[in-house]
Nucleic acid binder design. Structure first.
Lengths: 163, 163
DNA sequence: AGGAGATAGTTGTAGCGTCAAGTATTTGAT
DNA sequence: ATCAAATACTTGACGCTACAACTATCTCCT
């Protein structure tokens, strides 16, 4: 390792910092949400995606795409959220293979209560330390990486809306 | 949610893309390394940090900092690597509380064999889709975020060397 | 109509990370 | 010299995710 043949010094530096962020950011979000709202980041994000959907309802597959998750992972998470009364499953009328996940009233009030604190953390850790130009750069760069990680843009339900 | 009061459209877009990368990138690295070398990304990174160290030896605390991990996590991982003969523990002479992790010859050949494939994946997914200017932007932006996530720069053993 | 193959989702298991608790050693204050 | 607090690390238990296997339904071709 320590090898210029593979990655230039600039590339290696950027890469290692990206890895560090990838390792450290989830933990930061996780602990704030867990402490203040008893939710994991993934649970919060799942509830948030449902809260934005028409009728606060989404098919499992669509919700999986919005949350960048596999169906198996989502199924487990929705089961837990269901036990806690935050989400409800109902069979889909049009396609009987499909399941709709519906945000319950309790689920709604839970996300709404959790959101300000979470957005605050996002601001503090990511948005505020960046200039407007940085944010634009970040958007462009992450977009380019996502084009490779998810070429078909299947997992971009959440990311493509606002760009 | 869907709320301009909290984050501007530009900020929200960049944020969601960053989250998507944080969710998707680990899986990509993980599967290539697992498939080709039987290592998790964290295991690979741990071996790589040891391989760069003097005498291929590092104290657990230092290694934890280099890999952005907690001591508990590292301890578990080193135990597994030790069982597989890739790493060896030895008591530290100067401080008898401390443990040194040492890369074994087998560990060395394992990282060396794994490195090209891994670097290839890193190139394909992150470096190649970016211009040189993008890489510089990425380095700067991740640096700013890390200043918040890890203000004391404890977890920057790996990231600060090459910047 | 009938059947192969694709799609939608669930579930069990195994592995990894976090958290809390515990041991051993060192540091620093008195 | 002594003792409290800090440091370095390990361990066990629990929760979450990935993977594989499985069921149910739908699509499309003939």
């Amino acid at each position: 390792m320590t090898d210029a043949r593979w990655l230039s010094a600039e590339q290696l530096s950027a890469w290692k910092k990206l890895i560090a962020v990838v390792e450290l950011l989830p933990g930061t979000l996780e602990s704030q949400l867990q402490r203040d709202s008893g939710l994991s980041h993934f649970e919060y994000f799942t509830l948030a995606m449902l809260s934005e959907a028409p009728d606060r309802t989404l098919r499992m597959t669509t919700l999986a795409a919005h949350t960048n998750a596999t169906l198996a992972r989502l199924s487990h998470v929705v089961s837990r959220l269901e036990k806690r009364g935050l989400v409800r499953r109902e069979p889909c009328a049009e396609d009987r293979r499909a399941t709709n996940a519906v945000l319950t009233p309790v689920g709604w009030t839970t996300v709404v209560a959790a959101a300000p604190g979470h957005v605050g953390t996002v601001r503090e850790t990511v948005i505020d330390p960046l200039t407007a130009a940085d944010v634009a750069d970040l958007d462009r760069i992450m977009g380019r990486i996502l084009d490779v990680l998810d070429p078909s843009h299947v997992m971009r339900g959440a990311a493509q809306n606002d760009g």
